[in-house]
């Protein structure tokens, strides 16, 4: 939950924001206060009458003051009208130039790659042959893709789970309005206004969803647990479980869904799963690409409790993905989890 910066208006970014949006800015106000010592005398009398009443020195000073004010007006309105227009156009031009430069750099880098299919390419080394031929004995997983992403390259999958976690953290920071802050109830009422017109408590849907959601969750658990035997694994099984929870939420409403899935649930499950994964596979920070010999046996390939640590890592990844999908849906719909 982000804290509000009370002095955002006077900070540098706040002033830049206001300048680009062509509104009044504090900088102009302060400049005006600095120059404001003689009050403008043209408030009461027209210009010609005033000039006739002054003598020559006063007339020259008055003329210079008027010129200063005219210049200052031009500067101020340039900042608010033409400056922001210039800024917007310059931004677009600079963005296009930057994209073109990036395209040129990337094309140049791609042109230096060796031609496709050349047998001398550095890609044709022993790695693929080793994975395919020795994969099933070394990892114990019949599904070779699961064996690769969760055993040979488990460190990369740790990075992917971290990306999911970071995405949810970012959305939480931006969108979450929790009920604990009392000045946010007005905003929650506004959010509830959006959903006021939607159909609620459809009896047919609720009857069938009561039967279907356990089936969908069971199917998701089946896909997660069989990750190393048949195609599936943590990511797809977690997505199916998340879909089941979203279906329950749609049929029954937020109050009933919050009886079993609150923010504490999401916190606990995500942090424990991700910590388990990190603790079991982050030795790669220290040992490089070398594996430590694992305590858990690989077992007979084809059974569920084989393949070493892979089923447990699948479960951890599946739970993280399920919580992430549900959290993203409710944050975008309601603003709270």
């Amino acid at each position: 939950m982000a804290r509000k910066n009370e002095h955002y208006e006077e900070s540098l970014l706040g002033r830049l924001d206001r300048w680009t949006q062509s509104g009044e800015s504090g900088l102009d106000q302060r400049m005006m206060d600095d120059l404001a010592s003689p009050p403008p005398p043209a408030a009461s009398l027209p210009q010609k009458e005033l000039e006739r009443r002054m003598d020559r020195d006063d007339r020259m000073k008055h003329h210079m003051l008027l010129q200063e004010q005219a210049t200052y007006d031009r500067i101020r309105t340039w900042g608010s009208v033409r400056g922001s227009r210039f800024f917007r156009r310059a931004y677009i031009v600079l963005a296009v130039l930057f994209c073109l430069a990036l395209i040129a750099v990337l094309l140049r880098a791609t042109a230096t790659l060796p031609p496709f299919g050349n047998p001398d390419n550095p890609m044709h080394n022993d790695v693929a042959r080793r994975y395919i031929e020795d994969g099933m004995e070394e990892t114990g997983a019949v599904n070779l893709v699961a064996g690769m992403i969760l055993d040979y390259r488990a460190f990369d999958t740790l990075g992917e789970s971290n990306v999911l976690f970071t995405a949810v953290c970012a959305v939480l920071i931006l969108l979450r309005i929790s009920k604990e802050h009392s000045d946010a109830t007005a905003m929650l009422e506004l959010e509830a206004d959006d959903r006021m017109y939607e159909p609620q408590d459809d009896l047919i849907l609720q009857t069938m969803v009561r039967l279907l959601v356990p089936l969908i969750l069971l199917f998701g658990i089946y896909v997660i647990l069989n990750g190393h035997i048949s195609p599936g694994g943590g990511f797809s099984g977690g997505a199916v479980m998340g879909a089941g929870l979203i279906l329950y939420l749609n049929a029954f409403g937020f109050e009933k869904a919050e009886r079993f899935f609150t923010f504490r649930t999401f916190q606990t499950v995500s942090v424990i799963s991700l910590s388990f994964y990190a603790l079991s596979k982050s030795y790669s920070f220290f040992t490089g690409a070398n594996h430590l010999p694992s305590i858990i046996q690989t077992g007979i390939p084809g059974k569920i409790f084989s393949a070493g640590l892979i089923p447990y890592l699948n479960i951890a990844v599946g739970l993280v993905v399920c919580c992430t999908m549900y959290a993203l849906y409710t944050l975008f719909r309601k603003g709270d989890l």
Binding site: A192, M196, Q200, D201, N250, F254, A257, K334
Partner: peptide
């Protein structure tokens, strides 16, 4: 209709 609904439902 708006006043009837609690507004907390999804």
């Amino acid at each position: 209709h708006g006043e009837k609904e609690a507004g907390q439902h999804e």
